[in-house]
């Protein structure tokens, strides 16, 4: 019934992240945009591996195991989430140091080099 709506949701989230990166001037908001891009990539992987009526690929106390969703995209998404977490931590640390050095979070101010 849903048709291809999940793929469209992926596209909408991707465009929101792109909008934040390209038009915002606050570094925190740019970091949020990068996180949105990561979320859209993860959602695309999960959506690609879905089967209609599938259950989770875990056999413990499972009922009907006739149809299961694909496990490989889920495993790779797990990898991508952890890498995104590490990237976000490093990104926000750099933003903190930039704020201490320049006293502002505006990219137009930071672009001017200061000794």
């Amino acid at each position: 019934m849903t048709g291809n709506a999940p793929f469209l949701v992926v596209g909408v989230i991707f465009l929101l992240g792109l909008y934040a990166i390209l038009t915002e001037r606050n570094l925190i908001k740019i970091a949020i945009g990068i996180s949105l891009l990561e979320a859209s990539a993860n959602l695309l992987l999960i959506v690609l591996g879905y089967r209609t009526g599938g259950s989770v690929p875990i056999f413990t106390l499972a009922g009907d195991v006739g149809t299961m969703v694909l496990p490989t995209p889920q495993a790779l998404t797990l990898t991508a989430i952890v890498i995104g977490l590490a990237t976000s931590a490093l990104l926000l640390s750099l933003v903190m140091l930039l704020y201490r050095h320049y006293g502002t979070l505006d990219v137009r101010e930071i672009r001017r080099l200061r000794g």
Partner: peptide
């Protein structure tokens, strides 16, 4: 999107 398989119709996945 015009060429991708429909949502939930992942029939051919031999590795998985």
């Amino acid at each position: 999107l015009a060429r991708i398989h429909p949502f939930g119709d992942t029939t051919r996945a031999p590795m998985d």
